[in-house]
């Protein structure tokens, strides 16, 4: 029984995740008074990519070919840990801290694959991605720490149950929001919409990918985004996981989507070295969340 629920959850993540990206993109365009693409555009992109021929660089080794599967499986593994239909799907497998390490696994292979083709764009992307992620990790760790101090466990299922919203979780959610912007390559850290060589990070790493491999990588990025949105939503709008709270689910995720879209249209992209300040601020926010947790508010 449990295994069916887990598979259903994974399919849900695969099916819904691209929609969130489509929604953010549509919202951004509407705020800018543009018509914008359909919210289903990410699906069209994926279908197009899956049906296209793939071009592999002659310099590339097996790392380049294997990386999409590693990234995909890491993101799905992370998605398995998130409580959606039941409070604890496979929670014996890993906890909140393990989530950080699982994200790192995907990122590690993505960065290696970027170096594998011998293109300088790849190297640039890999270098920047590892730089940003190494600054994200301490802030993420502190967010987990503040949650741990509140609930007494790093188990995600404990955090998944309904709990009173405290000052600590709101501050932690803000820190996590900033982390999410960095991890999902959004403005002000990165920009998903351009291929400008001076600024791109995630796109630079995926530059040599095409066809099915690129589709897997993009799908993984969507899934990662959905996981992070979910975690923020659970911090500020906690629900108990008994049954299908479809409406409430969608509503709270929508709030995050709107927030991301608003931030993306109202903030300019930062220089790479100012990202350190941005993430430093996320770190400080997480620190404040820890202080709140210590004070018990």
């Amino acid at each position: 029984m449990e295994i069916i629920i887990i598979i259903a959850q994974l399919i849900l993540f695969i099916v819904i995740a691209p929609l969130l990206s489509g929604l953010v993109s549509k919202l951004k365009n509407n705020i800018r008074m543009r018509k914008g693409q359909s919210i289903f555009q990410p699906y069209y992109n994926l279908i197009k990519l899956f049906s296209k021929e793939e071009v592999v660089s002659e310099t590339a080794s097996w790392i380049f070919k294997a990386a999409p599967f590693v990234v995909f499986s890491a993101m799905l593994t992370a998605a398995t840990l998130i409580p959606v239909f039941i409070a604890s799907p496979l929670h014996r497998m890993g906890d909140f801290l393990a989530l950080i390490f699982i994200f790192a696994l995907g990122r590690f292979f993505m960065a290696l694959a970027a170096l594998d083709t011998g293109s300088s764009f790849g190297g640039m992307g890999a270098s920047r991605e590892m730089f940003i992620s190494s600054l994200v990790e301490p802030a993420f760790c502190l967010v987990v720490f503040s949650i741990f101090l509140q609930f007494g466990s790093t188990d995600i299922s404990v955090f998944g149950a309904a709990h009173p919203v405290s000052v600590c979780s709101i501050v932690a959610a803000f820190a996590l929001f900033m982390i999410t912007l960095a991890e999902t390559s959004r403005i002000p850290v990165d920009n998903q919409e351009t291929h400008l060589e001076l600024t791109m990070v995630h796109e630079a790493m995926a530059l040599e990918y095409s066809g099915r491999s690129l589709a897997l990588i993009e799908l993984s990025a969507h899934i990662k985004q959905m996981i992070l949105f979910f975690l923020i939503a659970q911090l500020v709008f906690p629900v108990n996981f008994c049954g299908f709270w479809i409406l409430w689910y969608s509503a709270r995720i929508m709030v995050i989507v709107i927030a991301v879209a608003l931030v993306e249209v109202s903030v300019a992209k930062m220089r790479l070295f100012r990202v350190a300040d941005f993430l430093g601020f996320a770190f400080v926010l997480a620190m404040i969340a820890v202080v709140c947790a210590v004070l018990g508010v």
Partner: peptide, 27 residues
């Protein structure tokens, strides 16, 4: 679980055609 899901990814990959070309890195 990582191996199972990686295999699932590989299965999806294999499901959609086999066309693949080896070419120079974009320069």
């Amino acid at each position: 679980w990582l191996i199972v899901l990686g295999a699932a990814g590989f299965a999806i990959y294999k499901l959609f055609g086999k066309r693949r070309r080896v070419y120079k890195t974009w320069d």
